[in-house]
Simulated assay, not measured.
Amino acid sequence: MATTCLVVMGVSGSGKSTVARLLADRLGWPMAEADEFHPEANIAKMTAGIPLTDADRGPWLRTLRDWISKQDKAGQGTVVTCSALKREYRDVLRGASARVHFVHLHGTQEVIAERLASRSGHFMPPSLLASQFAALEPLGADEDGTTVDVTATPDRIVDRVVAELEH
């Protein structure tokens, strides 16, 4: 039986890393930041304020999918942060051998912009937030996932996701 990979998704500044770390700690699963799978060329583009193209994202998503499958083959559930803004990106990740369950951290552009303004040390500049919201395709009814409001506390978000996994 396949293991589960929780992909904590959403635009930059939605709280993916915080929620993913809490989920990983609660479940005792390893966590991976999808940003760490980006090739240098992608990071350079984002740092320069240039949005990535679908062609830029393809190899990155396939590398992440393959990592998820490798963990599954080892019998290990995982938690991954990944923006996964478009369904076609999520389709690539769903190609992993594990069950891939998306946790969409949803918030308004105003709430997320406020969070980004107070954040430092990340290569994603706030200027790219509008392009992320423009690209965002919410989870479809047929997609394995949970959508949660980012105004809830991270602990409440984790409680909801874990409760849903148990059903």
Rank of each mutant, 00 (worst) to 15 (best):
M1R: 13
C5T: 14
V7C: 09
V8E: 01
V8D: 00
V8M: 04
V8Q: 02
M9R: 06
S12Y: 00
K16M: 06
S17H: 05
S17M: 07
T18W: 01
A20N: 05
A20L: 10
R21P: 02
L22G: 01
L22A: 08
A24S: 14
A24G: 10
M31G: 04
E33L: 12
A34S: 15
D35W: 03
F37P: 10
H38R: 07
H38S: 06
P39D: 12
N42I: 06
N42D: 02
A44T: 12
A44F: 04
K45L: 05
G49W: 03
G49F: 01
I50Y: 08
D54T: 12
A55Y: 05
A55D: 14
W60C: 06
W60L: 07
L61R: 00
T63G: 08
T63D: 12
T63A: 12
D66T: 10
W67C: 05
S69D: 07
K70G: 15
K70S: 15
A74M: 13
A74Y: 08
G75V: 10
Q76Y: 05
G77Y: 00
T78I: 12
C82A: 09
S83K: 00
K86T: 14
R87P: 07
E88L: 10
E88S: 15
Y89L: 04
Y89I: 06
Y89R: 06
R90T: 12
R90L: 13
R90S: 11
V92L: 10
G95R: 03
S97N: 01
A98D: 01
H101A: 11
H104I: 02
L105A: 09
L105C: 11
L105V: 13
H106M: 10
H106P: 02
T108N: 09
T108H: 08
E114I: 08
R115N: 05
R115I: 03
L116Q: 11
L116H: 05
A117C: 11
S118E: 15
G121C: 04
G121N: 01
P125S: 08
P126C: 04
S127T: 15
Q132P: 14
Q132G: 12
F133N: 03
L136M: 11
E137W: 12
G140C: 10
T147A: 15
T147S: 15
D149Q: 08
V150Y: 01
A152E: 07
P154I: 10
R156I: 10
D159L: 05
V161A: 03
A163K: 14
